[in-house]
């Protein structure tokens, strides 16, 4: 379970505070994977980043005993100046793995991007980025209860998308995902429940379809 208590998040704009979330109190059961819905700018990515600890709420707190991944997104989540290999090493180390050589090999194997693995990640295409990021979670052996995925399964070629779908589904019983994606088809593939971000509130739906209906209404 992930518990939100009195959570608020705003950004300063010229017109004053722009609230993304305002005094949110909700509990996500996390027995199902959740697709996050919301208009552009509603704060889907911010929400994911707060769950991953990349961004702190302005007030209130998020509490959970689950192991939650860092946000796997198209922006951030890795260091641009570091190569795929260096990122893999760094992330392995901070997650407590000491044998990074084995990890690197597994990431390289999954990502399958050849010599680019040793180039700075800022030179990668979004598909290559996603390959490395997902590769790192595969190498970490999915030690997470919750994987935070922001769009990364939506990019890349058909082969990569098939591969990511396969590995995520394989781990489904132990690792749930919280996913942001603009494609409903992608969300339906991975998620059973839905979470709608609207007017600074979070609304949880036990069925993704209900959430989509509500979102599109």
């Amino acid at each position: 379970m992930i518990h939100f208590e009195g959570l608020s998040k705003w950004y300063k704009t010229k017109a004053g505070r722009n609230y993304i979330l305002k005094d949110v109190n909700i509990t996500l059961p996390m027995d199902k994977s959740i697709g996050v819905l919301g208009r552009n700018g509603a704060g889907k990515s911010t929400f994911i980043r707060m769950l991953g600890g990349s961004e702190l709420p302005k007030s209130g707190s998020i509490q959970s005993d689950l192991r939650i991944s860092w946000p796997l997104g198209l922006q951030g989540g890795v260091q641009g100046q570091m190569s795929g290999r260096e990122n893999a090493r760094f992330i392995s180390r901070i997650h407590g793995y000491s044998d990074t050589r084995a990890m690197e090999d597994r990431v390289a194997d999954f990502a399958d991007i050849g010599q680019y693995f040793d180039e700075p990640m800022k030179s990668y295409s979004s598909g290559m980025r996603s390959r490395v990021m997902l590769g790192i979670t595969v190498a970490l052996d999915f030690q997470f209860d919750v994987l935070l995925i922001d769009e990364i399964t939506a990019v890349g070629d058909a082969a990569f998308r098939a591969k990511s779908e396969r590995v995520l589904k394989e781990k489904f019983s132990s690792t749930k995902v919280i996913m942001v994606n603009h494609s409903m088809e992608q969300l339906r593939k991975f998620c059973d429940a839905g979470l709608l971000i609207r007017n600074g509130k979070l609304e949880y739906f036990d069925s993704l379809e209900d959430a989509i209906v509500e979102y599109e209404s």
Binding site: R67, R93, I94, G96, Y97, S98, D99, A102, D141
Partner: peptide, 18 residues
């Protein structure tokens, strides 16, 4: 595989990170 560390103390996490 070595060290699938699931529960680390705060101090251990800091050590790994540093």
């Amino acid at each position: 595989m070595t060290g699938k560390t699931l529960h680390r103390s705060s101090f251990q996490i800091m050590k790994d990170t540093v």
